[in-house]
């Protein structure tokens, strides 16, 4: 391996420091015994304890998880339908327009999406609360899900479905027995993506929520306006830990799948 030059080492260090130092500080201060955020007063985990005793935070966390789980599930199912129509629907009138519209919300400013949904709910006289946040999150989560699933579906050999039908499956049964298992990994990724997006959405949730429905990002944002507390640091640290764990698990699963694939190939060659 080539040795890095001094210039490279310096720029790498600065770059990584810029990216990760704030996060490291945040994690460090979550274990601070002092109530003052910027003054180190010794190691303590008391803010984690007080966080779990803070009902407002716990309620917000519960709301967030429910919103994320429900909206991710619905978004994955709807996104899957969208992907099937886009990839398998063949040519139909307005296909380009429809597929363009599926991608449009990806680049739409969140403020616009949030505002337009708010106007819709007001116009329909729809009571704002958890339901409206879920509906809003489904609308954008489903676009991401459709993109992820359609990319898998378009690389899937369509003759698999034809073979299933040829062997006696109705088109619906062929989808359940053959297509769904084959695209299952993409559906899982789509769900995780929609879940994560819903988890950290602040803008759209703020527009569409009502009294009694506060998500975690909203709660954090509103508490920070009154000053950063060590509890927030603890909460953020937990979120970072969760995400890190998720990413590591995903890459480990990927590596294992790749290793299995190579092993399979070797097995196939061995008895060729």
């Amino acid at each position: 391996m080539n040795k890095l030059s001094r210039f490279n080492i310096t720029s790498l260090t600065l770059g990584f420091a810029f990216l990760y130092l704030p996060i490291l500080l945040l994690i460090l201060f979550s274990f601070n015994a002092s109530k003052l955020v910027t003054v180190w007063g010794g190691f303590s985990t008391k803010w984690y304890v007080s966080l779990f005793q803070n009902e407002a935070f716990m309620d917000a966390a519960w709301v967030t998880i429910r919103v994320a789980a429900i909206s991710a599930t619905a978004a994955t199912i709807l996104g899957c339908f969208g992907a099937i129509v886009m990839v398998r629907g063949g040519k139909f009138y307005g296909r380009t327009l429809f597929s363009g519209m599926i991608y449009a919300p990806l680049v739409m400013p969140e403020v616009i999406t949030g505002l337009s949904l708010l106007l819709l709910f007001v116009a329909l006289n729809f009571d704002r609360g958890i339901t409206t946040i879920i509906l809003a999150h489904i609308t954008f989560g489903m676009c991401y899900a459709a993109v992820v699933i359609s990319s898998r579906l378009s690389t899937m050999d369509q003759s698999l479905e034809e073979a299933a039908m040829d062997l006696g499956c109705t088109p619906f049964k062929a989808f359940i027995k053959i297509t769904a298992p084959v695209i299952a990994p993409a559906m899982v990724s789509a769900w995780l993506l929609a879940f994560t997006l819903s988890l950290d959405d602040l803008v759209i949730a703020s527009f569409t929520s009502g009294p009694g429905a506060t998500t975690l990002p909203m709660k954090i944002y509103s508490s920070v306006r009154l000053g950063v507390t060590p509890e927030i640091n603890a909460l953020s640290t937990l979120l970072i830990a969760t995400i890190t764990l998720g990413v590591i698990t995903a890459s480990w699963a990927n590596k294992r799948a790749e290793a299995n694939r190579i092993k399979d190939e070797q097995l196939a060659f061995a008895n060729d």
Partner: peptide, 20 residues
């Protein structure tokens, strides 16, 4: 008659084996 109701079977060029 749709494919699933025909007494006809097909061997596909790509083999179309169910991977799972």
């Amino acid at each position: 008659i749709p494919p699933h109701k025909r007494p006809v079977n097909m061997m596909f060029q790509s083999y179309a084996l169910f991977p799972h």
